[in-house]
Nucleic acid binder design. Structure first.
Lengths: 111, 111
DNA sequence: TTGACATATTCCCATATCGGTATATATAAT
DNA sequence: ATTATATATACCGATATGGGAATATGTCAA
């Protein structure tokens, strides 16, 4: 069986580079139309719609209507699980720990 | 065309839950055999081998041989790009939101 | 050498995924 | 009402994916 659906798993949803680009494009916190996103990423409108749909299905973006436009907004809180997971490894590239502390941490996580 | 290959993109490699579980299992920094990983995740040996191969191809794990065993070790540095990317959004949940923004967000997610 | 053990690889199958194109839906404008 | 605009959806084709089962490879032990 394939992996968990992109439409239900945040990690999977952001595995697609264009979707990360969309998230990046929405980081200003403002609402953006599908057309704006499509133009910004230089992808056809249906592609933008589809990617936005995936992001919406996992809650990373929210939609509202205004006239014939759909306004998409970033809902970055949904990325927290990703942050939480990857943060458990940041000590591997952060060198602020003394050697003693390092060993202690290793011991702790070794359980 | 499908998304970028799991074997070349870190985001994609960790989009698979079992592979994240493997990474979690290796966080103690010690070397683990394929058999240990397979047993820990309760998956067949070939599955463990295959997932480890993917993780290896993107550099998240490294291998060494000892006797008839292969020792896999976490190389967590390769997760830094993920951390760096998602960190650009952490202000959305670590910063205290103003009351106005909070209301706005509640409204949006209430839809 | 033979046999046991550890791991990797191959083959097959079912399915999800993405891009493209065409079309449907909805709303605004004339 | 008709037309233009904005977005979503449906369909299709090519391909990657992950699981299972069988097998290959490699290494140690007797």
């Amino acid at each position: 069986m394939p992996r968990a659906a992109t439409t239900s798993d945040v990690f999977n949803a952001i595995a697609e580079p264009r979707r990360r680009a969309i998230v990046d494009a929405l980081v200003d916190g403002r609402a953006h139309t599908v057309g704006e996103v499509a133009e910004r990423l230089r992808i056809p409108q249906p592609a933008a719609s589809k990617h936005l749909r995936v992001l919406r299905s996992v809650g990373i973006v929210t939609v509202s209507r205004r006239g014939r436009h759909r306004l998409y907004r970033l809902n970055a809180k949904e990325l927290k699980p990703v942050h939480d997971w990857v943060k458990t490894f940041d000590r591997f590239w952060t060198h602020h720990l003394s050697r003693v502390k390092e060993r202690a941490e290793r011991k702790m996580t070794a359980r």
